[in-house]
Amino acid sequence: MPVRTPHFPDLLFGPAARLRRWEGALMGLLEAHGYRELHPSLVLREALPDGTLRFFDGDDLVALRWDFTVALAGLLARGFPVPPDRVAYAGAVFRRPVQPWEAVERFEVGCERIQPEGESSSEADLELARLLMAIPGVLGLKSAILHLGHAALVRRPLEAERLFGDLADAVVAALSRRAPHRVREALNGHPAAARLTAHAEALLSELNGPTTLGALQSSPYAELLENDRDHMERALQALLPILPPNLELRVDLADVAGLGFYTGPTLRLWAPGAQQELAAGGRYDRLFPDLGRPWQAAGFCVRLSRLLDLAETRPDLFEQPQ
């Protein structure tokens, strides 16, 4: 149900201090790893999608910043012939909420790792995963779960079956609901129905540690996805030995959130019992080429507003600050 009265939370004392402390600590972590801050303007003038907070500045329709990645990409594509390889950001974005409990003003800290097209991206993906693994400790979360996914696991079979448009959207929506029976319903009568349903069942059969990758064996597209599976396996081999205590690594083969944007590995950070993910990111190699720049990129965003809510509703999930 659309929210008619957007809410703009006021942060009083405790949460305000927590926001300041977390922003500082996270930006410190990113700076220590070579990420330099960029601060795109709060007011954006180009391509204003639905859900943005729009208003007239004289005769011009403008919007409040709704997404840091998009804002930064525009800024970099316009002003930099060669992009900085590591950028970080902190501040608020403004979006009309999809769910009634979401705020309009949302505080975020995040980073982007940008490379020229053609350069190997594996090390950059690992660098981002390692950084994300450090974040629960910086925030004082007692325990957390990192979900590792890969956009190609769904995208590639759909493309191989030449499934686009509404039908592909219906399959993605069914996977997002973790409902293989909905995949079957959506593709009723389609020649690829049986194959894609079997693939959906394989993707959804497990949500566990590294052994989850084995579920791909039973997919009709196992061969097509061999390289992507190898990529995930190598990432797991690199990450598991350095997993901090109290951080669990899970493989989520059916992660389709943001599938229209992500092109490679995806990362999502959860706390046990949290209703929403606390950080999310992944590889998105199509954004800069769409802006006319031959660059590839990956990044993640820590959703501080959700963390502030979680600290209020589930303080037991956090260490008490000294």
Binding site: I145, R178, L207, D252, G273, Q275
Partner: peptide, 18 residues
């Protein structure tokens, strides 16, 4: 009839919910 689950609970604590 469909069995539904809270996205957050299922993804953050699958060992309890599944």
């Amino acid at each position: 009839a469909r069995l539904v689950a809270a996205r957050g609970a299922y993804l953050s604590e699958p060992e309890r919910i599944r």
